[in-house]
Structure formats: C-alpha cells, structure tokens
C-alpha cells in the first residue's frame, strides 16, 4: 500500500477509492463497479458489500492501484477525519499555481 488510512467501522458508509494505474489520477468506484475521476459519482457502500467491493478493486491491478475505503455520508459526500485530505485529492491543490492565494 502507498499509504495506510484509518480503519472504518462496518456500519460507516464508505466509498472505494484508488489511483488509476496508467495515469495515477484519483478514481472512485461507481455503483456498477466501474471507475470515475469524478468524486460526485462515488457510490457509498456498507458492511459486507463494502468489503466485497474493495476485494473486487484489489483484484484489478492493471486498472487501479492501492484501493482503500474513504469515509462518506449516506449520500456519498466526503466525510470523517480525512475530509480535508480526500477533498484535496478529489478537487486538486487548494491554490492556483501562479495566482497566489
């Protein structure tokens, strides 16, 4: 794993996120198991289903790298202790290069 993220409880809604192996871009698993570069398309999963989805992702080495759980709300919005990190990961650096703050 490239990084170790906090453990989440089974009843915490979670999205499966990873990096696209070819481009390195952040991606999120949709409900149908495909991957999107748009965090808004991330599907929330719970309990056993979440574990199954993560295992599926781990089996797609050529497509995605280092999948892990990211805490979200029931509607799929980024939540929890890593909200800042995951928001930056989803939307990019918080300053625009060359334009200052």
């Amino acid at each position: 794993m490239t990084s170790v993220r906090p453990k989440l409880k089974p009843d915490t809604p979670k999205a499966v996120t990873a990096w696209a192996t070819r481009t390195g871009r952040s991606v999120w698993m949709r409900q149908d198991g495909t991957w999107s570069e748009n965090v808004g398309e991330a599907a929330p999963f719970l309990g056993v289903e979440a574990e199954v989805r993560l295992a599926e992702a781990m089996g797609q080495e050529a497509v995605v790298t280092d999948p892990y759980f990211m805490e979200v709300t029931e509607s799929g919005r980024i939540a929890g202790r890593e909200t800042i990190r995951e928001t930056i990961r989803a939307t990019g650096p918080t300053f625009i290069f060359g334009e200052g703050i």
């Binding site: 490239t2 390195g24 050529a62 280092d66």
Partner: peptide, 25 residues
C-alpha cells in the same frame, strides 16, 4: 500496466527510478 506486475512488486522498482504515487498523480 498489463497487470503482470502488482503494485507491491512494482513499487520498489519505480522508486529506484524516482517515481512516487502522490495524492493526485
């Protein structure tokens, strides 16, 4: 890229060539 190498196998090889996987890319 073909999946023949897994990330855990590839990571030490890419690091020896200065390649990291960061937050965005």
């Amino acid at each position: 890229l073909s999946g023949e190498l897994k990330e855990d196998e590839f990571k030490p090889l890419r690091l020896q060539n200065g390649v990291y996987l960061q937050l965005h890319a």
